[in-house]
Amino acid sequence: MEGLSDIYGKYGAIEAKLLPLGDSAITVQLGETICRQTHDRVRQLAEHLERSRFAGMIEHVPAFLSVTVYFDPFEALAGLGDPADLSGSADPMALVAGWLADNLAKLEETAQEKPRLTEIPVCYGGELGPDLPEVAAVHGLSEQEVIEIHASAEYLVYMLGFAPGFAYLGGLPKSIATPRKQTPRLSIPAGTVGIAGDQTGVYPIATPGGWQLIGKTPEPLFLPDATPPTLLRAGDIVRFRPISREEFDRREAERR
């Protein structure tokens, strides 16, 4: 059985694996485990791809360990190679991999942008966070203690995915990490803040899900008419700020 001929190598100071994702995308894998260093590499490459593109490049998607670059092979061939070459030897993937290898080697020279700090107001508990008592009970804490722990940490946005504007956050204190619900809910309202295992996050649109729901933010995370269309971006630092039910209601009313 034929496998993929992935390219593994060292490009300047960076070690990376270039894996084809089909015939019109390529995944640049920059590490093996989720950590700050790999994340910084991912940010560097993603920021580089915002500034410099190759012919036929469509877009890029940063993830925990990798950046995937989508391209139109026909345009890439025209821009980076010989467009008249339709023989079996035409290899747009190799041309794009070559461009990426050259650009990976240049990455060290580029300065990294300073992360943005975003504060998300959250009304914890009550009907907006129906699982707060359960989370508190699991850890033998009071509801107030869970709120204080959740709101005291700084979280890093590793990537966006799953739903528009959904941020995979790193940094949930272990003391409140809680397994998912046994039975997922059919619909969780947009803005709900939850915990699942060692992750915490905010649902940007109504979705079914099995997270433990501890609160809700009045702040929209998905902003279809804004550029970019999300409150959070990969690389951001996030803090949650507890607000009262009155403030939550007032902010929601202002939005209408």
């Binding site: 993603a46 877009e59 998607v61 989508y70 799953f162 739903a163 970019p228």
Partner: peptide, 9 residues
Amino acid sequence: YGVQQFGVI
């Protein structure tokens, strides 16, 4: 296209 990095399908 162009907004997949924000989780938009």
